[in-house]
Amino acid sequence: MLDNPDSVAAPFGDRFAHVARLDVGGGALLMLSGQVAVDDDGAVVAPGDITAQAERIFEIVGGVLAAHGAGFGDVLHVRTFLTDLAQLAGYAGVRRKVFPGRPPASTTIEVNRLFLPGAVLEVEITAAVADR
């Protein structure tokens, strides 16, 4: 099932779904599309500020997860795209707050740019949630 929950703004031009959900025995696998820090109108939040963008991204991710009965404790893997690895510390500080215990598996990649000017960070999430 592909979904764009009401808890977050719709993706740009309905070109993709925020999450693909695969129901499996006893739960579901959630594959979240890459999220960038945009407001409800699609404008980049705090252009160039990795800390503020990370906070907004995890706010969006939290809304998508919650719409499917999941939370940050259900996250299995985080894939991160940064435009400048020198800014990793700002992102890492926010991540430690979101995942205070044992962090999920992770991949971090430096890229030339992201699709929206001013966006310096994009985060993809994979989560598994048990039926409740």
Score class of each variant (00 low, 15 high):
A43V: 13
A43Q: 13
A46Q: 12
A46W: 14
D49Q: 07
D49P: 07
I50W: 01
I50G: 03
I50N: 00
A52V: 03
A54V: 00
E55W: 02
R56M: 12
R56L: 05
I60G: 09
I60S: 09
V61L: 08
V61Y: 00
G62W: 04
G63C: 05
V64I: 15
V64L: 13
A67D: 08
A67W: 06
A67V: 04
H68C: 02
G69Y: 14
A70T: 13
G71K: 02
F72M: 07
F72H: 04
F72Y: 09
D74H: 12
D74R: 09
V75N: 01
V75Y: 06
V75Q: 04
H77N: 09
H77Y: 15
H77E: 01
V78W: 01
R79G: 03
T80E: 06
T80K: 03
F81K: 07
F81W: 14
F81A: 08
T83V: 10
L85K: 06
L85H: 10
A86Q: 08
A86D: 09
Q87V: 02
L88T: 11
G90D: 03
Y91A: 00
A92Q: 01
G93E: 12
G93W: 05
R96D: 11
K97S: 10
V98L: 11
F99N: 06
F99T: 04
P100I: 15
G101V: 11
R102G: 03
P103D: 06
P103Y: 09
P103Q: 06
P104H: 02
P104L: 14
A105R: 04
T107H: 09
T107V: 12
T108V: 15
I109V: 13
V111F: 04
V111H: 07
N112R: 02
R113F: 08
F115A: 14
F115D: 15
P117M: 14
P117K: 15
G118E: 10
V120R: 09
L121Y: 04
L121R: 05
L121E: 02
E122T: 13
E122K: 14
T126E: 08
A127S: 14
V129P: 02
